[in-house]
Structure formats: C-alpha cells, structure tokens
C-alpha cells in the first residue's frame, strides 16, 4: 500500500518531467477520493492522510507536495458538509477537481506576473533549475532581450539543463557559472530570480541548496532578490535554523543537505499567483488559509 502511491508518483513524474511533482500528487489524491468508499468524513480524512503520508516517502516528493496535500484536504472540505453522504462525494470530487485546475494554471499566472520585472538589457542571476523561473524567463523573452547567468548547481548539474532549455526554446543568452563563482558575478547582476520548493510561515523560502548563500551575497551587494512560487507551496512550518530542515522529506542525500532555508530578511518580494507579496504578507495569507 505504502510503496504503491510513492511509486505511482515517481512514475508519473518521469512520464511528465515538465510538471512539478505537486500536480501528479494531487491527481493521485483526487483519484483516491473518487475510488474510496467512505462511511464518514472522519474515515475519508484518515484515508487521505494515509495516502499523503505515503506520497511523502517518494523520492521525488518535495516540501511543496506536503503543503499541496494539506491544502487539498482543507480546500475540499471548505464546503457545506451537512448534506448526506451520497451527495457529499460528488461535491467533494468537484471541489477537488477545481483545486487541481487552479494549481495547474498557477505556474502560468506567476510567470506572467514575474515577466514584468524583467526589462531589456537586464542581467539576471538564476539558481539551478526551476520550472516557474524558466516559464517567466520564456515569457519575458517575447518582449525583451536579456542575459541569464545560471549556477551549475552541483551535484546534479541541473543548471546546465536549464540553460539548454532556455537557449534552445527562446534563444536567450545563457552563461552557466560554477556555484562558487556567484560572488564574482554578483556585481554585474541586475536582479536575482529564485524558485522555491516551499514558502514557510516566516515569509522565508526553502529551496535547493545554495540559495541561501546567493541571497546573502545579493543582499550585501544590494541586488534585488525575487522569489517566484505558486501559493500552493505555502506551508505551515517555521524553521528556526537550518538544522530544523532535517525533518523534511528528501532534505538530505548521502549525508549532504539538499535544501536550505533563506530567511525573509534576504528576500525583497515573492511573486505568487495571489499577487506580488512582501515576505511579511505571506504569513498573513497563511493565516487566512488556515485559521
């Protein structure tokens, strides 16, 4: 049972590499909702909790998957529940479907919003590979010419992949940097665009390892740091230090950390599908979502 959902998620991620693991995870949850025969809401919630827990054991699960599952469970039950169970199930399923539609279109919304920040002649620093940052750059490339500096992002060299995607699709001028060369290039950068695996309650982000040092460097040289992320990645989690991340799924690999936490002090704006937010507004949105 446990292996089942996790493997399913991994398979789906491989089939559609262009999708963030969030969307297939929600699809799996939704299909479980359709298939399950629950006698009470309580029962449904337990079964959905089990599914999301097993999804988290998958190797491609990120903190975003966890937050999306939480939000899915919350969103579908934010409806009138005092109808009888026969009518309830279709109501829940239709809410689930609308949630899926919403998160599938979120990335495009963010990309459109962020494209306005990119102007002609800009030199932009990007860390590793991020689907939403890539979409934003492709969107902006329709109107303006700019140069992108991409960190190589060891150990999996995903930065090189990002550069390939950008230059082949839209012919954007790309430079791949060694991770250690960020400080060297920072002085000539106009803005820093970052993706995020998760947005936490403080307004900070959890992202691929190396993000924190880029943000610190950018702050010191007064370069604006913009984070691009879908609101579904907001999670009720408040790390106090980097060590707190150990509890997250896939936070470590072979004894090396895979993600780090960037505190809100280093972030100028977060561009989300809810709009462009300051870091302090993130927790306001979270309170609205969960209280």
């Amino acid at each position: 049972m446990v292996v089942d959902y996790a493997q399913q998620l991994e398979r789906k991620c491989q089939e559609e590499p262009d999708l963030a693991p969030i969307v297939p995870a929600i699809r799996i949850l939704l299909s479980c909702l359709r298939d399950s025969d629950f006698g009470s809401i309580q029962e449904l919630q337990t079964s959905l909790n089990n599914v999301s827990e097993s999804l988290m054991t998958s190797s491609c699960a990120t903190i975003g998957v966890e937050s999306a599952c939480e939000l899915f469970k919350r969103y579908i039950t934010l409806t009138r529940l005092d109808v009888d169970l026969n009518q309830l199930k279709p109501a829940l399923v239709s809410r689930g479907e609308s949630f899926l539609r919403k998160i599938s279109s979120d990335r495009h919304k963010v990309a459109k919003l962020a494209a306005h920040f990119i102007l002609n002649g800009h030199r932009i620093l990007v860390h590793s590979r991020s689907r939403v940052v890539r979409d934003a750059l492709l969107e902006a490339a329709k109107r303006s010419n700019f140069t992108v500096y991409i960190t190589e992002s060891a150990p999996d060299q995903s930065g090189a992949q990002m550069a390939k995607e950008l230059s082949t699709v839209a012919g954007i001028e790309c430079h791949v940097l060694k991770d250690a060369a960020v400080g060297y290039f920072m002085e000539r950068i106009d803005l820093v665009l970052l993706g995020a695996e998760g947005i936490v309650e403080s307004g900070g982000i959890i992202n691929r390892i190396g993000t924190f040092q880029i943000a610190v460097c950018a702050r010191q040289l007064n370069k604006p740091v913009y984070v691009l992320a879908e609101s579904v990645k907001c999670i009720r989690f408040f790390p106090l230090s980097q060590r707190d991340l150990k509890s997250l799924p896939n936070a470590e690999k072979d004894g090396h950390p895979c993600v780090d936490y960037t505190s809100p002090d280093f972030i100028r704006l977060l561009i989300t599908d809810l709009g462009t937010l300051t870091p302090s507004a993130v927790s306001d949105e979270l309170i609205k979502l969960y209280l």
Binding site: E201, G203, R236, F238, L240, P264, S283, I287, K288, L291
Partner: peptide, 22 residues
C-alpha cells in the same frame, strides 16, 4: 523577534493585525 508562538500557530511579529482581524 524571530517567532511568536500563539495558540493559533507560529507567526512572525508582523502578523498581529491579521490575527486581530480574524
């Protein structure tokens, strides 16, 4: 202040007006 612990969860200090509104 890094974090405020309330019965409604952990927040940064700047979220006080939102909690009041809620």
């Amino acid at each position: 202040v890094t974090m405020v612990v309330t019965e409604r969860g952990t927040l940064p200090c700047t979220s006080v007006p939102v909690v009041l509104r809620v």
